[in-house]
């Protein structure tokens, strides 16, 4: 009557997903942002973003293999947020904080948006 918890399991799984992404293995969607193409796993996008959840949970989109985001979305902000989804690290600095905030709002990543907002406020 005991249970063994592998305390780093969540991180180990995420690391492997990121390795799969970097090698473009089993990625099942391409996201186009202002002409730039990003390969990803739908399940990760859906797990991290309310926007992608809404898109891919629609039955008519279940086999969607490519998606274009609003042209107003900044590719750099999206790239940072995609890296965050796969690593838990958000590489913020003053030059990207605002665009990352706006992209996080667009992707309905409220907790990350709150963090970006606090980061910006702390710098002014």
């Amino acid at each position: 009557d005991g249970c063994i918890q592998f305390t780093r399991h969540a991180g180990d799984v995420l690391l492997n997903f990121n390795r799969l992404r970097s090698r473009n293995i089993l990625t099942d969607v391409t996201v186009q942002v202002d002409g730039q193409i990003f390969h990803a796993h739908k399940a990760i996008l859906v797990a991290c973003s309310g926007f992608f959840y809404s898109v891919f949970m629609k039955p008519e989109n279940s086999s969607l293999g490519a998606i274009s985001l609003d042209p107003k979305v900044d590719p750099k902000g999206f790239s940072l947020l995609l890296d965050f989804m796969y690593t838990s690290f958000l590489n913020l600095n003053d030059s990207v904080a605002l665009t990352t905030l706006n992209t996080a709002i667009y992707l309905q990543m409220e907790h990350v948006a709150d963090t970006c907002h606090r980061f910006i406020k702390s710098r002014h």
Binding site: D1, G2, C3, I4, Q5, H9, D12, N16, R19
Partner: peptide
């Protein structure tokens, strides 16, 4: 798992997919 005695295993939990073959 509430109420269950939990033993913490802090080592790697799964194999590591290589960066490149």
């Amino acid at each position: 798992y509430e109420g269950v005695n939990t033993i913490k295993e802090r080592g790697r939990s799964i194999h590591e997919i290589p960066r490149q073959d």
